[in-house]
Design a protein around this nucleic acid. Structure first.
Length: 261
DNA sequence: ATGGTCGCGTAGCGA
């Protein structure tokens, strides 16, 4: 079973690219972020053609998350509080039975938080604390859980091309990194980091500006966190870097995990 | 010298 995440930076603009990638990677479940459209404008048919059900939580112009799945999705949750209408569209969760494996998937798009310090940074930290609360609840179920998406956190200096230039950025600030580590201390494992141990430059994002892609000035900010039960089934991990080099690319690339029992 | 990267939505914000 392959579970994937991709921050597509406008789903409508990226339809042909996403379709090509779905055909090639053939994931069972996909979390998309930064849809940048309302529910009514989501290209449902473009994905149903390829055999995917869509669950969408859109928002005008900004944010927006979706779950695509070949299998039916159940027990759907939108948001991290009891009042999703007061939240940005940044978190959606569902349950699926895939290849006989009961799996809970959370797709997320954490706030960027710049400039730091400031109100936006405070909002980022508060959002991460709500995510952690939800993550702890999920861990207590002792089930297979994958929380994946754009965390907007660079976990360590090895995950950024020029750490000294990024030291004061919201993505690198100690408070943000500390919150990331609480998720690991709680029991989640960082699938991409484990797979990339010993290998260099496991980036998932390259800015549109300044020739970042050409120079390989990347960041690792898209992550897949696995509960112990999911981690026990981890078979492979991938970053589909080549999609950053296509015409009209997103600034992020797909990240995926393969689980086998 | 100038512009400088995108996307939304059509100005200026967000990343």
């Amino acid at each position: 079973m392959i579970v994937a995440s991709w921050n597509v930076n406008s789903v409508r603009l990226r339809v042909p690219l996403i379709q090509q990638w779905l055909r090639q990677r053939a994931p069972d479940i996909v979390c998309l972020q930064e849809l940048k459209c309302q529910d009514k404008d989501f290209p449902t048919e473009a994905f149903s053609e390829l055999g995917y059900n869509s669950l969408v939580w859109g928002q005008k112009a900004y944010n927006g998350v979706a779950l695509l799945s070949k299998m039916p999705l159940e027990d759907v949750r939108r948001g991290l509080t009891d009042e999703p209408e007061k939240e940005d569209a940044r978190y959606m969760e569902a349950f699926a039975l895939v290849e006989g494996m009961p799996l809970r998937i959370g797709g997320l798009y954490a706030p960027n938080g710049n400039p730091a310090p400031g109100p936006k940074f405070d909002a980022k930290l508060a959002w991460m604390q709500r995510l952690r609360a939800r993550a702890q609840t999920l861990l207590q179920q002792e089930e297979m859980v994958v929380l994946l998406g754009d965390y907007n956190i660079i976990p360590a200096d090895e995950d950024v091309y020029a750490p000294e230039q990024w030291r004061d950025d919201a993505l690198c600030r100690p408070q943000a990194r500390a919150l990331w580590r609480t998720l690991l201390h709680d029991g989640f494992s960082d699938a991409v980091a484990h797979a990339w141990r010993g290998k260099a430059r496991p980036y998932t994002f390259w800015d549109y500006q300044g020739g970042a892609w050409r120079k390989d000035n990347g960041l690792r900010i898209d992550h897949a966190l696995l509960s112990p039960q999911a981690s026990d089934c981890l078979h492979a991990v991938g970053i589909d870097k080549e999609w950053r080099g296509e015409p009209k690319p997103s600034d992020h690339v797909p990240v995926w995990v393969e689980l086998k029992r």
